[in-house]
Write a protein that binds this DNA or RNA. Structure first.
Lengths: 218, 218
DNA sequence: GCTGTTTGTGAACAGTACTTCACAACTGGA
DNA sequence: TCCAGTTGTGAAGTACTGTTCACAAACAGC
């Protein structure tokens, strides 16, 4: 009933097809690619939540693909597959952002165990969100607060009436209300000269807002 | 009073220092780097909202840096500087995500005009957010709705009571309320068999949630 | 000192978001 | 057929969020 999509990236056709078969037999939906470059194309369309990638491939190898995947699709889990497996190799892969590591040759069960474990971790990840997420998102749910953050991001630091006038809001106490809200949530701070500015936290949030708008509108 | 931070990346020390001087004279705060690699280090710490980058540099060149910057810091504007400027060159840079293009040698005013224009666009970007942002963020401001999206992301598609039980909520009408909300905001859809699943829009949002939590917690 | 602007507080009110409840249509099996 | 579980609606109430207003301290300029 519930099918999870998994991507397999391996230039070795035999191995690739055998992995696909094992996973499909176990009820997963599988997308297979022969090269990292082809995989990136597919990923841009539809992002699976788990990727199996071979270390050694012509063109872009698994190790080169790792940081790209981690940056672009941070939620996606990655299992690295290697033929000539050494400790250094494994450590490098894990440090590079792989979530698990399979040495060739592996048995059917090794593969399935690794896959299930990765998906379990994913489940856990998704259901235990950071507590600060709630505060941040509640803050952002109000357009005035977003405008204040945007204005501060543009202008660096502003005084109270600067903000009020920039937003074109006649009632200054309304702005004050939202400033207080942002202040208690540590997104902005106020120094001795009473000027407001973004905290590092606030800057991250603004950055995320940009990401959101780019992704949502595209 | 209001100082904007600008990053300059150029291996040519003379040119770099002259750019820094021009910008500082005009009241900007400037961070200068001799290589793209050094710049990436600095960017991870503090992200300026405008970067001037030379096309030709030993190591990673401007064109290679472009996609990295665009992906990692989508809000940051990029002005590309080139010595051997051709049309192809310029077009490639703009298509690669540069926001403006300066040919060497340029005059002091050429530089300042380009910088001011980029900052103006930035201002505009920030103050005219997508209208759908408001809906999306209002949706996300509720933890139950986030949990529903997360559950659907993990399980692909679920029926009504699956969701209710997964979230451990005894009153099913409460879940219904939030499902309806998500449905009217086009983040989830329901097919003939009454199962709910994420829309493409909803998948994007979940992806953003991951990004947010990674960025906020780090 | 007076005057006007800036910055701020708290209480009352308005509006929205959320929850609860009572009820009902539908669905698949014994 | 009846029964139990599923899926859903709308109204009423509650809680929370946001707005407005009346007021005031701090400060700058004259």
């Amino acid at each position: 009933m519930i099918t999870e999509t998994i991507m397999v990236i391996d230039d070795d056709q035999d191995l690739r097809e055998s992995i696909v078969e094992i996973l499909e037999d176990d009820g997963y939906t599988v997308t297979a690619c022969a090269t990292a470059e082809a995989a990136l194309q597919v990923l841009a369309e539809k992002t699976p939540r788990l990727v199996l990638v071979d270390n050694m491939m012509p063109g872009m190898g698994g190790m080169a693909l790792l940081p790209l995947l981690k940056r672009e699709y941070p939620a996606t889990k990655i299992i690295m597959i290697t033929a000539f497996s050494t400790v250094d190799n494994a450590v490098a892969a894990m440090r590079g952002g792989a979530d698990d590591y399979l040495s060739k040759p592996f048995r059917r069960d090794d593969l399935l165990v690794a896959v299930r474990r990765a998906l379990e971790v994913l489940k856990f990840d998704l259901q235990h969100e950071e507590p600060c997420m709630d505060e941040a998102l509640t803050c952002l749910s109000n357009p005035i607060r977003r405008q204040i953050l945007a204005a501060l991001s543009v202008n660096g630091h502003m005084r109270f009436m600067d903000i009020t006038r920039t937003l074109g809001i006649s009632d200054h106490t309304k702005v004050n209300f939202h400033l207080k809200n942002l202040k208690t949530n540590n997104l902005i701070s106020q120094n001795r000269e009473k000027t407001y500015r973004l905290t590092p936290q606030g800057e991250k949030i603004i950055d995320c807002l940009h990401l959101l708008s780019k992704r949502i509108s595209s």
